[in-house]
Design a protein around this nucleic acid. Structure first.
Lengths: 267, 267
DNA sequence: TCGATCTCCTTACGCCCTACGGTATCGTCA
DNA sequence: TGACGATACCGTAGGGCGTAAGGAGATCGA
């Protein structure tokens, strides 16, 4: 459901994201000792979202339950759910590598960046549901972008082209990851495996639209060209391999395009 | 929040999608005359979702209000919200052109397809929130896919490459449209214009992270290379033009890549 | 005319987020 | 030492949401 990030108080979110000033002023305020910390809440919330495999499964109640407090206790530390999501979003990006692997050509650097990012999205699919329109502007996400720019710096692109390439790459990885994650989640949530689901649909389609192959000849041909299962292969594994192949092939196409663009950018 | 489509009863959804059998059996059943139709409900639901610019704004209650009935009355015609979304999703795809424009080369055909699709997503941003993992498999969406395949048939790609190219193109268009739609929606929902929002964030960033430019030199340079506003241009228009340029440039990169792949596919 | 059957509504349950006001706790200063 | 007042935390409640259950009324075939 495309959650809008950055919707809460900007000052609150940004302060939480970039080193908290109040954490440094040594003086403790009067009153009872805090039983929680923002860090603990964020960690718990990430764990909840990971398990639910969806931002929709994240509720203040579930987070509070995991921490052994009431949902209202969280509001002492975090202004609201929107700001919590902002911080979760950035924090989890700290997992991604940011260092350069020296001496590699830019193609393999970008490929490594893309597959790291895709794996990351599959570990934390809820990240894909945070809107990218008004970025959270946190340090860890920024580092990921910087890593891509570093990898691409070897390709020699003009600024305009570079912007387009960056967004293409992001959209490509996010799209592929989104599809893969949603497929997994659909199987988990509904309890129906992909093959069963497709089987049911295809049977129904044959009954309800017997003229399918005539109306959509190219789609039909593309679907039937799917490589058949090797005899003893687990269908789920085969599907995984198939999508990996599509990812690699799509990325290769994109990289070819970047190379061509770099050439015409006159470098 | 990535809504899972195809979650309801497959038979129900598919029957609603592919010509309703019961509509043809002439015999009216006893009981009061139906005051609504599935079509009217779907139309109202699409209007609601368009206005809310988000699938989250779509509720059975809102749809019912627009039709002047109670929310429970809808359940006579539609099994549930999931199936309603399935039907909305496919129905709205009927807007898109499906005919081929004869005599054009495949590059301009694909470009036209992509920009039509992007405009469509911007008119109906909620479509982007319906999961693509278990496709609805309705006739109108299928026609859109078939149109792309027809446009690409001139490029001479092997089946494997074709699959990768199709998914790259879809992901690219969806990603670009998603960002654009969410930017618009964020401005509408929060009442804060994009420039104001960015201004606030940048100011905060300067205060909280004065070392930003040192930590992220490439990001800083890319951001500062943005073309400045022409004196009397509306900032919103300038932003629109900027994203259009990025879209066109990204698509061009992708098409270059397709061309290269077609070459190495040996056609 | 008389069921049978269908449409549509009211009610209710169980989720969600969070505003508000009350209470328990503890550092600080007189 | 003792009281003050800031702070942490919770209970309640209000307004969302989807939809199960069951009842009221309309309309058909027999």
């Amino acid at each position: 459901m495309g959650i809008i990030a950055g919707q809460g108080d900007p000052t609150a979110s940004m302060t939480l994201l970039w080193g908290r000033a109040e954490a440094r002023s040594g003086r403790r305020a009067p009153g009872p000792k805090p039983g929680l910390t923002v860090d603990a809440i964020v960690e718990a919330a990430i764990a909840v979202a990971d398990e639910a495999a969806s931002a929709a499964g994240l509720s203040m109640r579930t987070v509070a339950e995991r921490l052994g407090c009431s949902s209202m206790a969280l509001y002492t530390y975090v202004p609201g759910k929107a700001e919590l999501l902002d911080v979760m979003y950035d924090r989890v990006h700290a997992e991604l590598p940011t260092g350069r692997s020296p001496g590699e050509d830019w193609r393999s650097e970008v490929t490594a960046w893309a597959s790291d990012l895709k794996a990351f999205y599959l570990r934390h699919p809820w990240v894909l549901q945070v809107s990218y329109a008004r970025p959270v502007l946190g340090p860890h996400e920024q580092a990921v972008l910087e890593a891509l720019l570093r990898a691409l710096s070897g390709a020699g692109l003009r600024a305009g082209t570079l912007r387009a390439v960056v967004s293409s790459l992001l959209h490509f990885v996010q799209g592929a990851a989104r599809t893969a994650a949603e497929t997994r989640r659909a199987a988990a949530v509904t309890g129906v495996s992909d093959q069963d689901w497709w089987g049911t649909r295809v049977t129904l389609l044959n009954e309800l639209a017997p003229d399918f192959a005539d109306r959509f000849p190219l789609s039909t041909r593309l679907a039937s060209s799917q490589s058949p299962l090797a005899g003893d292969e687990d269908p789920a594994d085969a599907w995984e391999r198939e999508t990996d192949d599509v990812f690699a092939a799509g990325l290769a196409v994109l990289l070819d395009g970047i190379e061509a663009a770099a050439g015409s950018d006159g470098c």
